[in-house]
Amino acid sequence: MYLKSYEALEPKDLMHLRTVLAEVCSEMKISIDDAQVQTIGHDLVGLWLSGFRSSEELKVMLKPLA
């Protein structure tokens, strides 16, 4: 099931995205408190709403944006 842009993410979805964000920050060697992380998080949510769900998909799709 794909989310519409006006639908809210469930807590489990947010936890998944938070885990992916932490992994991406670790791979990029940046602190979770870095200003760039807000942009990465925004991009992750956009990818999620576009239908990308797995950690691997999200990371691969995020690389060209980072």
Rank of each mutant, 00 (worst) to 15 (best):
R53T: 06
L17G: 00
E10Q: 10
L65T: 02
K12I: 07
L49A: 10
W48H: 07
A22L: 10
D33M: 13
Q38H: 14
A66G: 00
L65F: 06
I30E: 03
H42M: 11
L17E: 05
L47H: 06
L17V: 02
S54L: 05
W48T: 03
G41W: 03
H42E: 11
K59N: 09
H42I: 05
V24C: 05
M61G: 00
E10L: 08
A35D: 13
Q36P: 00
S5V: 08
L47P: 03
S31V: 06
T19E: 05
L49R: 15
M1T: 02
R53D: 01
I40L: 15
D33Q: 12
G41C: 02
D13I: 01
E27Q: 14
G46L: 09
P64Y: 04
A22E: 05
S31I: 02
K29A: 13
I40D: 02
G46I: 02
S54H: 08
D13H: 15
E23N: 08
C25Q: 07
V37L: 11
T39I: 12
L65C: 03
E7R: 08
K12T: 02
L49V: 12
K4C: 03
I40W: 11
E7Q: 15
P64C: 05
V24Y: 01
F52I: 04
G46H: 07
G46D: 09
G41E: 02
L44T: 08
L62T: 03
Y6D: 14
H16M: 04
A66I: 12
A8D: 09
L14W: 09
C25K: 05
L49Q: 15
K59C: 11
E56V: 10
D34G: 09
Q36S: 15
D34V: 07
M61R: 15
K12Y: 07
K12W: 04
L62R: 05
A66M: 09
S55H: 10
E7P: 01
T39C: 04
E27K: 13
S50V: 01
E27C: 08
Q36D: 15
W48S: 01
K59Q: 15
K29N: 14
R18N: 04
L65K: 14
Q38S: 15
L58A: 09
